[in-house]
Structures are given as C-alpha cells and as structure tokens.
Amino acid sequence: MPRERVSIKGTRQGLRILLDPEGEFEEVLQELEERLNSGNGFFTGASVDIYTGGRELRPEHWAALAELVGKRFGLRIGVIDQRRQPPEELPYGPVRNQGGEEAALADRVEPTLLVKRTLRSGQSVRFKGNVVIVGDVNPGAEVVATGDVIVIGVLRGMVHAGAAGNRAAVVTAFRLAPTQLRIADVITRAPDNASLPSVPEVARIKDGCVVIEEYVS
C-alpha cells in the first residue's frame, strides 16, 4: 500500500492538514481532493492550517491549493506554512466567537491579537487575524498574520501580513525597518543600507509591489 500523502487532523485551533513533502505536488493535491471529498461536506466552513512539510510551494501550487481547499471545499485557510515541522502548538489560539449575531459579525471583523511585549530573536507569533504588538519586533523574530500587522514600536524582524493570500493586508509600524516584509505572496526586503525611519510608516501592495508610505491617520 502506498504511504499516505495527506494527513488531516483536528486540533484545538481547527483542522490541520499535513502534506507529504515528497513526490509530485499534483499527486498530493489529488489525494487531498479525494480525502476532502470523502468528508461529504463535513469539513465545509472549518478553519484549517496547511503544512507542506518543508516543500517550497510555487505560486501556481499556492493558487491551486487555495482554489481547492478554500473555493471548492469552502474551508477557511488560516496559515499555509512551508516549514519542515508544523509547530507543536500555535503560540496563541484564535479567538473563538459564539452566538449567532456575534458570529455573523466575526465573519466581517477578523479577530485581533494583542501582544504586549517585545518579540526577541527566535520568538514568533502566528495568528489567524490581525496582530497588534505593543513593543518592538527585534531582528530574528517573526510575526505571521492572515490580516494586518501593527507594531507600536520598532519593527526590525520579519513580518508577514495577509499570510493566507490577502493582498489587501497592510503592515503599520511606529518605526518600520523589517529584515523582510511579506504581504500575501509578495516578498520584499529592506535596501542594504537602510537607516531607521523617523516617522511611522505603512506598507501595502500597490500594483503588485510593496509600497511604503508615511502613516497618515
């Protein structure tokens, strides 16, 4: 029997899909489709994190995956993570909303995580929703959010906003000097001799490029 290329697990944070890093991605995708199909709509509406086990996704793979999981099966994708190992447990679980009205509101308003401390090298925050950091994000630290990222402090580390593909996500920082800044599938880095800006700034995608502008309220 061939080994399983796809594993689907339920976790406290929702579903977790692990993909086999070996073999043709198309085949993995096909098996994923079969597995989701066998659920007979059971998975629809669930939130899901996808881990590629270290496989680097090409843009078309990324799109195919989002199309299959998000559009065809109606799952809400939290994070598509290309690291070798999925994290033990997300450092912060998503905010759960209960009740009808609140849930309806929650569909329009993404949950927001407030982190009231400085993130140091090696520390990371991953969250389905927006992240606000009151403190600095030091070099070697990372913030990954499916929504916007706001740093009330100096952002020197790596930040990824709109991590599930939301190109409208923005990154705002009191001082924006990231090692690398990603919004959705667009990756940029600071120029090699950049100095610390003197005003708050916002980064967003314009015409497919990340543009940084002075923050005006």
Partner: peptide, 12 residues
C-alpha cells in the same frame, strides 16, 4: 547582540 537578544527571550 542578536544572540544576546535570543538568550534574553529564552531566559524570560
């Protein structure tokens, strides 16, 4: 300094 920063986080 980068490593020191990492250590401070770990100590914490």
């Amino acid at each position: 300094v980068r490593d020191a920063d990492r250590i401070i986080g770990l100590l914490d």
